[in-house]
Computed example of a mutant assay.
Amino acid sequence: MFQEGRMSRFRKFHSFRLLFSGLLILFFIVSFAGCGKDQGKAPAGGEKKETAAGAIRIGVAGSHSGDLASYGLPTVKAAELVVKGINAKGGILGRKVELLVEDDACKPEMAANIAAKLVSSKVDAVIGHICSGATKAAIGIYKDAGIIAISPSATHPELTQSGQYPNFFRTIAPDDAQARLQVDFAINSLKARRIAVLHDKGDYGKGLAEYARKFIESSNAAQVVLFEGVTPGAVDYSAVVQKIKGSDADAVIYGGYHPEASSIVMQMRKKNMKTWFISDDGVKDITFIKVAGSYAEGVYATGPRDTSSNPLAIAANEAHKKAYGSDPGAFYLNAYAATQALLNAIEKAGSTDSEKIKQTLRSQDVDTPLGKIRFDERGDALGVGFAMYQVKNGAYVEVK
């Protein structure tokens, strides 16, 4: 009995071991098959979806909503048109180019979040941001991630001149050049001797205004009779308008964007003030003219040099009209050039490695709507600059 019981227990144990081994083998087979079946699927929970295999991913970040959307949306359209043309020819390095468009509304806190989002989306480079404050908030994040950013419009000098952001490039000249042109024009062309300098307290507007004040004070030909910051988004600017009037200023130089500029100009003209108003590329936008209406007449603003006679600029503008049924907006050609320069650098470098792209941007010329450009060691585009414009008959016209 004992021997028989022991044999029975042995047979049961052996059967159990065989069953367990079979189940274990089946588990591994199912698991392996499941892994193969799920390869390439996007993870759950809203994480980044995998796109076309091997696509070169370019972020396009800027103001695409709100009062300053007219500055950012032309960049999206420029990037779309350049990429569409490149993809139609087979892409770059045998890979298609994909755009990831993100809206920061020109707000620094949103720009930082957008930068983190684009980094997590594993973009290879970024076109943007648009406003200087937003750009400053974002490019440190890109630098830490080893990602290059090229802006068509962020003009604060520190972005390139500080040396803190070797990953940053731009296709527009910096604000010290813009402020110099404004001051020289006010003093030498308009013969202004008493100048009020206003700004919107932001990185861009205040930075430009401080340069303007510096250049006026060192000119020995004019004086700053008022230096004042205004609150963006305010309904009434009558207090600062009254200060301008009380200062007996010949001219106002304003650093900032079109919403505040249009309100200030309208209130000045309604008080019959003939004071010259000179502003920047943040105001040289059709939206300023639409909002200020007839009060915009005679206003001066600096902006990128007119390259509309360049055959590549003509082609780029025509492409916009054909695709979108309208004339392009602010910084469109600068954004077109930025996208061309970036993708040309990737192609010439034969890589999306940021160090190789940087070296190529600094050493290789590229033909763009702005002319033939490349970038200096700081990241500024060689050969670009500003011109003075004036509103005449409802449109900005270059002052020769």
Rank of each mutant, 00 (worst) to 15 (best):
M1G: 14
G5M: 14
R9T: 08
R11W: 09
R11I: 12
V30G: 09
A33I: 10
A42I: 11
E47R: 15
G54I: 04
I56S: 05
G66D: 10
D67I: 04
S70T: 13
Y71E: 00
T75C: 14
T75R: 05
V76Y: 02
A78W: 08
L81V: 14
K84Q: 14
N87Y: 01
N87M: 03
N87I: 06
A88L: 10
A88T: 08
A88G: 11
L93V: 12
E98R: 10
N113W: 00
A115F: 00
A116I: 01
V126C: 09
G128I: 06
I130N: 06
G133S: 07
A138Y: 00
G140L: 02
A149F: 03
T155E: 01
E158M: 09
Q161W: 10
R170V: 04
N188D: 13
A192S: 14
R193T: 04
R194F: 10
I195Q: 08
H199M: 05
G202Q: 12
D203I: 14
G205E: 03
G205P: 04
E210P: 01
Y211K: 15
F215D: 03
S218D: 14
A221C: 02
V224R: 08
V235T: 15
V235I: 12
S238N: 10
V240N: 02
V241W: 02
K243D: 10
I244K: 01
D248S: 15
A249T: 12
A249I: 12
I253E: 11
Y254C: 03
G255F: 03
G256H: 02
H258S: 07
P259L: 10
I264W: 04
V265W: 03
V265K: 09
K270A: 12
M273S: 13
D280T: 15
T287R: 15
T287G: 04
F288A: 14
F288M: 11
K290D: 13
P311L: 11
L312Q: 13
F331H: 07
A337N: 06
A345Y: 08
G350W: 03
T352D: 02
K358H: 08
T360Q: 05
K372H: 12
D376Y: 11
L382S: 08
L382Q: 14
Q390S: 03
V391S: 04
Y396P: 07
E398M: 10
